[in-house]
Design a protein around this nucleic acid. Structure first.
Lengths: 244, 244
DNA sequence: TCCTGCAATTGAGGCTGATCAATTATCCAA
DNA sequence: TTGGATAATTGATCAGCCTCAATTGCAGGA
């Protein structure tokens, strides 16, 4: 799954061993033809007409909105096997390739006829829409009620759980995005992200040789943090007990 | 539209002068029969089976999730004329009546046949789903990147814009929900909400005789704040200029 | 080779908003 | 009327995260 690129950013891709993860989609496209995107390339902008749905074959995509004054909010990431562009009306947010990506496009016409004719396909679309909605509520919770440590732990364990779902080791994760993307996703600054990585490292929660590869040494405590159950030291947090 | 109740919480309702706002829905229900709910009554819980869609005829509904330790996140509010319960799968969040409510229910069976047969209806559903999605991204932005003043200004101008859309005065808004609901919605504490109301009042941005009725005296500056364009004093904020 | 630009890290200090605590007002039941 | 519960407000204090600044490392181009 993992291929290290020249620019040191790990590119995550679907392997040939997972044909079932893409077949439902490729049945309805032009022979699974792919479009290649460079890192940081804009895929579409907020307000653009929605004219295709894409399956990510490799790489990572980042969705974001920007305020007038330049403040940016990353609303989510999408990974290989995810469909992007679901929804109705014009695009609600910008989509950008975090790293070089391969996208398999499907026209809206094909998409709608596939929805109507292919139950497996429409089920997949339905399932992903539900996951996205649930994820956005989860994300609201992270942003309103969690500390910096809890947020980063939540982010890391999320990547770990994704690995487990796909049959890879949950004990190490690749971080394809830059610190600034993580910061804008978690509602923090890059400095806080960096500092929290460092405290995790000194507390023995993670190991990190370069900014893109993280070993989750103490996954249980990270998961507990992500659930808001204890602080970085492993103690049950005081303010949390009072709230309970 | 506005009826003050015994418990001093203003109950917002649809008037008879807006039949068009409900007709599209009532065509498909049992003569527009309504269910009455008391204040603070649970409508459904997270995980419940989705077995009906409702139109709010009067009152306000609040959606929220609760962490294991009791921390609560309000993900949104719904007002008269809104449909609640749209989506697929089990409910993703709790729904509670902020105040006494009148809901007009529609079974999922009627809902699906209405979607299939009535273009105006399916357009309304589509439109509201889009509004909700856009609103949730907007909300993410508010929670990650805005100060307390900006968040509250955003909340107030949102209510004001809703008034304008419905043909009422945008210069005063009724606050049907408690401070704690606003706080959990904006990711702040009730104390901060209260303090920010007070500073708005002393700065001449708003007038407030009781906690439920707010006069938006300087709507432009509130709107600018809500957009993140300036601070409470009306000056362009320093940190914002740098980011631009 | 140097130079530039970008990404990440680390440190110092300050500010915003949370926490804890006390007070007031209202409503309702006894 | 009194007492209790709920909601809102205000004050004092403190900590977590942001801001500003400096440094390091790496990649690519001149």
């Amino acid at each position: 799954m993992h291929i290290l690129e020249a620019n040191t950013r790990p590119v995550i891709a679907l392997t040939k061993h997972q044909p079932s993860r893409t077949d439902f989609f490729s049945r309805h496209t032009s022979n699974g033809a792919c479009r290649k995107l460079a890192a940081r390339q804009l895929i579409w902008a907020e307000g653009d007409v929605r004219n295709e749905v894409c399956l990510i074959r490799s790489g990572t995509v980042c969705f974001y909105k920007v305020l007038m004054d330049g403040r940016r909010v990353v609303t989510g990431f999408a990974y290989p096997g995810d469909m992007i562009g679901l929804g109705t009306g014009p695009h609600q947010r910008n989509a950008e390739a975090v790293q070089c990506c391969k996208l398999e496009p499907m026209t809206m016409a094909s998409f709608h006829s596939a929805i109507a004719s292919d139950t497996a396909f429409s089920d997949s679309v339905q399932a992903q829409s539900c996951r996205e909605l649930a994820g956005s509520y989860e994300h609201l919770m992270v942003l309103t009620k969690m500390t910096a440590s809890e947020r980063l732990a939540h982010f890391l364990t999320g990547l770990s759980m994704r690995n487990r779902r796909l049959g890879y080791s949950p004990n190490s994760v690749l971080i394809p995005m830059r610190r600034v993307d993580i910061a804008d996703y978690l509602g923090l600054t890059i400095e806080t992200i960096s500092r929290t990585f460092t405290t995790f490292k000194t507390d023995g929660l993670i190991g990190m040789e370069d900014p893109c590869v993280v070993f989750l040494i103490n996954l249980e405590r990270l998961a507990a943090l992500a659930r808001g159950a204890c602080d970085e030291k492993g103690r049950v947090s005081v303010c949390r007990k009072i709230a309970a």
